[in-house]
Computed example of a mutant assay.
Amino acid sequence: MITIKEVARHAGVSMSTVSYVLSGKRTISEETRRRVERSIAALGYHPNAGARALASSRSQVLGLIVPLHTDQNVPVVMQFVSSIVGAARDRDYDVLLLTDEAGPGEAHRVVARSMADAIVVMDVESADPRLAGLRDLDAPVVLLGLPDDHEGLSCVDLDFTAAGRRMAGHLADLGHRSVALIGSPPAVYERGTSYAERLLAGFRAETARRGTSATTHACAPGYDAVSACLDAVLEAGDVTGLVVHNEAVLGPLLLELRRRGLDVPSDLSVIALCPDDVAAALPFPLTSISVPARELGAIAVEMVLARIAGDLPPEVRLLQPRLTDRASTAPPQKP
């Protein structure tokens, strides 16, 4: 393993000069700094993480709270986790994953032990019980989600309320007057998960504004549950358009529609909120609003690192929904 002594010898400077270049604690001439950086690159030197933390009072680690639930769509969750880890590594940070029931107590523990410089929180609930503890945390916190009471907290998320409005409005613009929302699993609503409640609110507000007949249906994963949910949708009236906010049921839903002899979009238009790669890879690619996991993860890291670097006020960033038409929606056929 290359040592700081070897870097200093290669660059023709003292070990303290190399240390100052790494820590930035003293001004070093541009010529010397570049010579040291060239030697670091040439030798493949990597500073010892423990020594670097002692020198800078930082761990170069972000804590990421990701409570895992059986009703979650794990591949989509992992898109967010992968995005955050990648964005952190691009900024020379590692990520400490806190799962299961990790909440403010766990966040306080890792911050108090200097195991993490800041915390990013996923799976945010509308009335999240972790908020009081997170507000008291002696480290920057960014929520990847938007609770009802976000005063004093920095948050970033897709504007799910606008997404619900946009999808309902898209079907209304095509002439659909009876639509249904196939939503997240019942447990997601029972838990008060923020994104699900906000999309539902947006869908209901827009259908009410447009005078569109609308029903909503929580849908558990699994083919039998999807079939039962579709029974309930079709029994509710002359539905011609579906809004789907449940990535896990999209494949079974399309198969069940085909089994019943229902054509998309001739018999039923379908629009979904899901990652673009999911929408495009289905047997019938779906018109969709993207879940921009990569962008949201990168912004969360950017926001939390900016707060490590300086005392910035809380902010909320909501990304506006982006709709991609893949021809699964069309005007309803006349009777």
Results as ranks from 00 to 15, higher is better:
residue 124 V to F: 02
residue 124 V to W: 00
residue 125 E to N: 14
residue 126 S to A: 14
residue 126 S to K: 13
residue 126 S to M: 14
residue 127 A to F: 12
residue 127 A to P: 08
residue 128 D to N: 04
residue 129 P to K: 13
residue 130 R to A: 08
residue 130 R to S: 08
residue 132 A to H: 09
residue 134 L to I: 01
residue 135 R to Y: 01
residue 139 A to I: 02
residue 140 P to L: 06
residue 141 V to S: 08
residue 143 L to N: 02
residue 143 L to M: 07
residue 143 L to C: 01
residue 145 G to K: 06
residue 146 L to P: 03
residue 148 D to I: 10
residue 148 D to M: 10
residue 148 D to P: 06
residue 149 D to L: 04
residue 149 D to M: 04
residue 149 D to H: 14
residue 149 D to I: 01
residue 151 E to A: 15
residue 151 E to Q: 15
residue 152 G to I: 05
residue 152 G to S: 13
residue 153 L to P: 01
residue 153 L to I: 03
residue 158 L to G: 06
residue 160 F to L: 13
residue 160 F to C: 12
residue 161 T to H: 15
residue 167 M to F: 06
residue 167 M to K: 09
residue 170 H to Y: 06
residue 171 L to Q: 01
residue 173 D to E: 13
residue 175 G to Y: 11
residue 178 S to M: 06
residue 178 S to Q: 10
residue 178 S to K: 02
residue 179 V to A: 05
residue 180 A to D: 04
residue 183 G to P: 04
residue 183 G to F: 00
residue 187 A to R: 12
residue 192 G to A: 02
residue 195 Y to L: 10
residue 195 Y to M: 10
residue 198 R to I: 04
residue 201 A to L: 03
residue 202 G to I: 00
residue 206 E to N: 05
residue 206 E to Q: 14
residue 210 R to Y: 04
residue 210 R to L: 08
residue 211 G to H: 04
residue 212 T to A: 03
residue 214 A to C: 07
residue 216 T to E: 14
residue 217 H to I: 15
